[in-house]
Simulated assay, not measured.
Amino acid sequence: MAEWDLRKLQILRTLRDRGTVTATAEALHMTPSAVSQQLTNLSRQLGVELLRAHGRRVRLTDAARLVLRHAEAVFEQLERADADLAAHVHGEAGQVRVGAFSTAVPALVVPAVTALRATHPGITVRVREAEAQEAYELLAAQDVDLALSLAAEAPTAADPRFTRVPLFADPLDVALPRAHPLADAAGLRLADLAAEPWIFGGSGPWSDITRGACEAAGFRPHQGHSAAGWTAILAMVEAGMGVALVPRMAAVPRDGVAMRALHADRPVRHVVAAVRRGAGEDGAVARVLTALRGAAGDLGG
């Protein structure tokens, strides 16, 4: 029987995910030569070629991918074992590290933590603000236990490393200057604002979300301005510089801004949580997921 070494399999898995020996070494706090040596040893132990040179880089062989398909089942089972052991040892106690994008922290994570303090005071939640790419890198590296992101930025359901949990359909409302002629119009539709200058998000997927929602309503929006943060976007709306789509859980009241809900053509953005496959079925992580679902339900999207 071949000799299976979990540590070396983790190195091979990281190489698959990061793409280069240098990136793998950095992620695992190793030297590139140590990574190469460990993978050479694993190849010898398993009796198959795992890597082939491709220019200055290396490429995983078909045998390596076959090995990793089986290894994923092992890693999943070990995550289940970790979760079961934590539940056995700590009961209702434990620490859960959460990586979440900026608007999810006050709208979902803080209410969930507040609820947990009342119902499960032995569970500690450590929060790290991180946009999707960083959050999933942290989750894969086991530096966080749970990641929150928009569904559009999450790994696919077919990704063997993670389990996705739908949380919330966040409505997108229209922000208009308070003095705008349509600020109080009945039955407002996106199409009614086709001639307006639109303020786009300057980071993440927000420009695509605005453009897609407007095109679904039958027009291509004219981009008047862009900004990375909701405070800047709403300040420009208040100054009469344009209109914007704003997620309901990101909206902050401003005297000079009218927030209008859309009904007939209401766009939404979907928020999901993700855990490492096998890790969210019991123990403290499951408690945090339940609290996040409760906070999402309270938002009423």
Results as ranks from 00 to 15, higher is better:
Leu39Asn: 05
Leu39His: 03
Leu39Met: 09
Thr40Ala: 13
Asn41Trp: 06
Asn41Asp: 11
Asn41Pro: 00
Leu42Pro: 03
Ser43Ile: 01
Arg44Leu: 10
Arg44Pro: 02
Gln45Glu: 13
Leu46Gln: 07
Leu46Tyr: 04
Val48Phe: 04
Val48His: 07
Glu49Leu: 07
Glu49His: 06
Leu50Asp: 07
Leu51Lys: 10
Leu51Asn: 07
Arg52Leu: 06
Arg52Phe: 00
Arg52Glu: 10
Ala53Val: 11
Ala53His: 11
Ala53Glu: 11
Ala53Trp: 06
His54Met: 10
Gly55Met: 06
Arg56Phe: 09
Arg57Gln: 15
Arg57Lys: 14
Val58Ser: 09
Val58Thr: 13
Arg59Ser: 13
Leu60Trp: 02
Leu60Lys: 00
Leu60Asn: 02
Thr61Gly: 03
Thr61Tyr: 00
Thr61Ser: 01
Asp62Phe: 01
Ala63Gln: 10
Ala64Tyr: 05
Ala64Val: 05
Ala64Met: 06
Arg65Phe: 01
Arg65Ala: 02
Arg65Ile: 03
Leu66His: 06
Leu66Trp: 03
Val67Gln: 01
Val67Ile: 09
Val67Cys: 02
Val67Gly: 01
Leu68Pro: 01
Leu68Lys: 00
Leu68Arg: 00
His70Cys: 03
His70Tyr: 08
Ala71Asn: 08
Glu72Trp: 15
Val74Asp: 07
Phe75Pro: 03
Phe75Lys: 05
Phe75Asn: 02
Phe75Tyr: 15
Glu76Phe: 05
Glu76Ala: 13
Gln77Leu: 13
Leu78Gly: 02
Leu78Cys: 04
Leu78Met: 13
Leu78Ile: 10
Leu78Thr: 08
Leu78Gln: 14
Leu78Pro: 01
Arg80Ser: 05
Arg80Trp: 01
Ala81Met: 12
Asp82Trp: 10
Ala83Tyr: 00
Ala83Ser: 09
Asp84Gln: 15
Asp84Asn: 11
Leu85Lys: 09
Ala86Lys: 06
Ala87Cys: 10
His88Tyr: 11
His88Leu: 15
His88Ser: 14
His90Glu: 14
His90Thr: 06
His90Trp: 09
Gly91Thr: 12
Glu92His: 11
Glu92Ile: 04
